[in-house]
Design a protein around this nucleic acid. Structure first.
Length: 440
RNA sequence: CGGGGCGUAGCGCAGUCUGGUAGCGCAUCUGCUUUGGGAGCAGAGGGUCGCGUGUUCAAAUCACGCCGCCCCGACCA
């Protein structure tokens, strides 16, 4: 993409509504535009990041055996009356009437609807386990939206729903999501720690929040430091195998958010030098809720013994739009965003320091063409701007690598390759710059 | 929803207390000079001062009402 033809409205100054660093940087780097309290438009660069995050989540969900669908944002109110949630959900749920006076809600979540879909088609235990998911916009009319996309009212969420014949099956489904989440967040450059979470009226120990440690996190968190060094399961992990060892290796160590934190137990179970008290951002939550929806909605399957049983369910959410903010909170410096490679809007920034100079233009065009042919996404700054302005905006938008091409270096046949995260710069011949990125 | 704050050009702000024909910086446009870490000079364009009602000869400024946004708390992907 040539920057001269792109739409990248970067701001030199910070709009005064933004207080936390991720919000400030998202506005300054031209990722989002606020349209109302807690409601944002995604500009080209931000939309690319959102799509990268969504795609990683999709790949890991598919790998874990979940099946993608797409449910609507608007849902009939009657569906919510079946489970009693129409009244229970409260003013956080946006209620709408259409021209025929039919009642609709803008979905804050999809347990009711997915259960409706399930019961319409699935009647045998042989079809289980089943896990259906989608990534769709949600609306929750938060009392106090804040921190940009970190706590918006409209937000993009991946939500998955598992259906199993019994508790043992549900546990296996839960474990699959647990492992898939570890992998997904890791691919986004995030270190997450699964922590025990509130489970609601169903109880049990089957709910975890996935927490990213960050100073600006909304909740206090407490855990065993060894959780920071746990290996992430590889792409070759067999999701049909028994995942319990991977899960219990973590769950046996203390980890809790302040909501469920037990200081006495923390001190009893964790040696003093292993105790970590910090702040964190919740980027995902998984939980098992049993027959909470299947009973009222009569989502039953016929078991091997010929009797109908309500399915055992779980749901699993990832805040896709929130992740864009959370990643920035976890990865930035004074100059701007530092995108991890997996979610960067472009792979490489190509900076032409002197557009109009035949040799510099030719070198840039060659690099641009070759790396594009190598399937790299390049943001080519071909604008007629001063060098300083180009460096500053590329640092701000945080593309992981910069290739800087100017007349001074080209005299010696060299271009500069800069790593955004470390600031390390190498002067290398054009061919090696291309080779360095074309091979991976 | 309780408490606090803000709304003046695309962005950041001054002007409001003490009413008198709306200003600064950045950005934008034109020209010249510059050109390896957010350039300089000269010129230009851009505002029903959030909206409404009232007070007044006169309202960004005073009064009342409304709307929007931000921050702190109670609640949540």
């Amino acid at each position: 993409m040539r920057l001269s033809r792109y739409f990248l409205p970067v701001l030199k100054e910070t709009p005064n509504e933004a207080q936390i660093v991720s919000h400030r940087l998202m506005l300054r780097a031209g990722l989002i535009r606020q349209e109302a309290a807690g409601i944002y438009a995604w500009l080209p660069l931000g939309f690319r990041v959102l799509q990268k995050i969504e795609q990683i989540v999709r790949e890991e969900m598919n790998r874990a055996g979940a099946i993608e669908i797409l449910m609507p944002t608007l849902q009939p109110a009657d569906l919510w009356r079946e489970t009693g949630r129409y009244d229970a959900y409260g003013p956080e749920m946006l209620r709408i009437k259409d021209r025929q006076d039919r009642e609709l809600v803008y979905g804050p979540t999809n347990e009711d609807m997915v259960t409706e879909i399930f019961r319409a088609y699935v009647h045998s235990y042989k079809a289980l386990p089943l896990n259906l998911y989608h990534t769709q916009w949600k609306f929750r009319d938060e009392v106090r939206p804040r921190f940009g996309v970190m706590r918006g009212r409209e937000f993009l969420m991946k939500d998955a729903y598992s259906f199993d014949l019994n508790k043992e099956g549900a546990r296996r489904s839960y474990n699959r999501m647990y492992v898939a989440y570890l992998r997904a967040f890791s691919r986004m450059g995030l270190q997450t720690i699964p922590m025990r979470a509130e489970t609601g009226p169903i109880g049990g120990d089957l709910s975890h929040e996935f927490i990213v440690l960050a100073e600006t996190g909304e909740s206090g968190v407490f855990c065993h430091k060894d959780l920071l060094d746990m290996p992430i399961p590889g792409a070759d992990i067999d999701f049909d195998s028994d995942l319990e060892p991977i899960v219990s290796q973590r769950t046996k160590l203390y980890a809790a958010t302040e909501d469920v934190h037990d200081q006495a137990r923390f001190e009893r179970e964790v040696p003093a030098d292993k105790r970590l008290s910090a702040r964190g951002i919740e980027v995902g939550q998984i939980f098992y809720f049993g027959t909470k929806y299947s009973v009222p909605m009569k989502a039953v399957v016929t078991g091997p013994d010929g009797r109908d049983v309500p399915i055992e369910g779980g749901s699993y959410g990832i805040g896709v739009s929130r992740l864009a903010g959370a990643i920035i909170e976890a990865s930035h410096d004074d100059a701007g965003i530092i995108w991890p490679e997996g979610v960067a809007p472009f792979d490489i920034a190509l900076i032409n320091l002197k557009p109009g100079d035949a040799k510099v233009d030719a070198a840039c065009e060659e690099i641009y063409a070759k790396l594009t042919a190598a399937k790299k996404d390049i943001l080519y700054d071909d604008r007629d701007e001063r060098a300083g302005a180009k460096f500053a905006s590329m640092d701000l938008i945080g593309i992981p690598y910069q290739i800087v091409v100017g007349p001074r270096g080209l005299e010696k046949g060299l271009v500069e390759v800069k790593v955004r995260a470390t600031g390390v710069k190498d002067e290398v011949p054009v061919e090696s710059a291309v080779a360095r990125f074309a091979k991976t």
